[in-house]
């Protein structure tokens, strides 16, 4: 099996300690992360609640700097966010004062792309994510699934090299999630060959989702988050056809084995 080995993101000894400004309490969210994200791969990230998955993504996005180690993107240290690294959040984070079209246009608008070009690009993406006819709606008028389509189109409008997605489908119902998984794969290029695909880093709590979408699965352990395991998913693409298949079920069961105890412990700690 041929995989592009070129690395897009490199994490070297990355650690992150949050310090509360109120009581000075320290929370170690990540420790000793050494990892590389390959160009063009679909990487899913799983791990118990609070293990630092969102923190990892926000370090790569450039929202925060690690307290130790370094984060490299295309060989250069990350300092601050960049349109090349697109971000999608669990809670949509759409601009409520902008319509669907206005939200999708925001990236090109912020980067000074002229109005005609960005309108055209926004319209293309709106059609692509299936929001045709909803261009003039405001986010509060949309369903959860439609909001996430809009957030996806907004991220894609900047044509980012890396898609950083933090539980983007966690808030939608199961049927919508299945449909959106398929569409996400289609937009990413599930049916195309590997090299020209964008790179995706996709955090999820759904272990079946993690298996179905991924080329590789990054499994993080309990706080402070460390790398517990990296699983290769050697299943053929396109993946939509494999939904519910025996191979996927087997890998899902294996993944569950890996994280079950830690998940239970994390819950026990949280409820103490």
């Amino acid at each position: 099996m041929e995989k592009p080995l070129d690395e897009l993101v490199r994490l070297q000894g990355v650690g992150m300690v949050y310090q509360s400004s109120r009581d000075g309490e320290r929370v170690e969210a990540l420790a000793g992360i050494d990892f590389s994200v390959r160009r063009g791969e679909f990487l899913t990230v799983v791990g118990p609640s609070g293990c630092g998955k969102s923190t990892l993504l926000s370090l790569i996005a450039g929202f925060a700097a690690p307290t130790s180690g370094s984060v490299l993107f295309e060989g250069r240290p990350v300092d601050g966010p960049d349109p090349a690294r697109g971000v999608m959040f669990q809670e949509y984070a759409l601009f409520p004062w902008r319509t669907v079209a206005g939200n999708v246009e925001f990236g090109p608008f912020a980067r000074g792309v002229d109005a005609a070009t960005r309108r055209a690009r926004a319209q293309t993406l709106i059609d692509l994510v299936g929001l045709k006819g909803f261009e003039r709606r405001y986010p509060h008028e949309l369903s959860g699934g439609m909001r996430q389509r809009c957030a996806l189109a907004r991220m894609l409008a900047n044509e980012p090299t890396l898609w950083l997605m933090d539980e983007p489908l966690a808030a939608v119902d199961l049927q919508t999630r299945i449909i959106l998984q398929d569409e996400l794969l289609r937009l990413w290029g599930d049916a195309r060959a590997g090299a020209q695909r964008p790179t995706v880093m996709f955090v999820t709590h759904g272990i079946d989702e993690a298996v179905l979408l991924a080329d590789r699965i990054l499994v993080l352990g309990r706080r402070p988050g460390r790398i517990k395991e990296v699983l290769e998913v050697d299943l053929p693409r396109p993946r939509a056809a494999l939904r519910g298949s025996a191979e996927v079920a087997r890998l899902t069961a294996h993944l569950w084995e890996l994280i079950r105890d830690e998940a239970a412990q994390a819950i026990a700690e949280e409820t103490q």
Binding site: F63, R85, V87, L94, F95, F106, R154
Partner: peptide
């Protein structure tokens, strides 16, 4: 909303 600020920064604002 801090998330909106983050989103805007990531989009190149």
């Amino acid at each position: 909303d801090r998330r909106l600020l983050s989103a805007a920064r990531a989009l190149g604002a």
